[in-house]
Amino acid sequence: MTSRNSAASRGEWRIHVILIIAVTLMVIPFVWEILTAFKTSNEVASLPPTIIPANPTLHAFETFFTSVPFWAQFSVSALSLIMRVVGQVLIAALAGYAFARLRFPGRNVLFVLFLLMLMVPSQLFLLGQFELMKGLGLLNTLPALAIPGIFSAFGTFLMRQAFMTMPKEYEEAARLDGAGTLRTFWSVMLPMARSMIAALAVLTSLYSWNDLLWPLIVSPGGGNRPLTVGLASMQGQFGTDYPTLMAGALVCTIPLVVVFLALQRQFFAGIASSGLKG
């Protein structure tokens, strides 16, 4: 055993070399983004290009914050994320529990319907969702950004799976103590599902924060734009002022990266349990 371990660690440095090269390639774009954000646009256009900013300046950040309503867009992104995550977790947990544990007519048919919706690409729903938001007079509002994402066949499926794997004894004990269905769900089952809820919340946050297409569609007037749409429209405004564009990209990226660094385990669990991508 010991000989095998020492043999393994002797060869390990080679693996580290490969991984360090790969990881360096992965982060180079970020490094370049950061370096550029501290340059002037003249320096960016000069040949040969400088790697380290000759005279590091915060000018690009000043331009970004004075010409883009960053905090307004940030709060739109954050508020729509909160609405979507809280709404989705609650609705998906309720339905997931009913599908996993309760009996009602048409349970299997309805569940198959949910599964079918999972397989349809989201573009199939956009026209109808847009019409509905327009009909309700919600275009350019926060609820329009959040509402479709609140209802998720995927979230329901994930919560159902979580409740299916739980031992029935806890529920039975709660019921013998006289707790009703809702009480059993709320104070016994929901707390037990917290790791799956965390995974679902983190995953939903990721989609909500990163989404471009739906906000683009539902905010045609430019009111209540989230960061993604604001950032994309900066390109038309600033053209080739790359330091400002990079400063903007950097500032808009930082919030979710910070959350990710704090909640790595939940992010990885969410991805591993679902694997679904945006």
Binding site: M26, F30, T228, A232, A249, C252, T253, F260, G278
Partner: peptide, 13 residues
């Protein structure tokens, strides 16, 4: 890291 970066920012960079 690229997964938690806004795709819009990724595209710009």
């Amino acid at each position: 890291l690229p997964v938690v970066t806004l795709p819009v920012a990724v595209g710009m960079v």
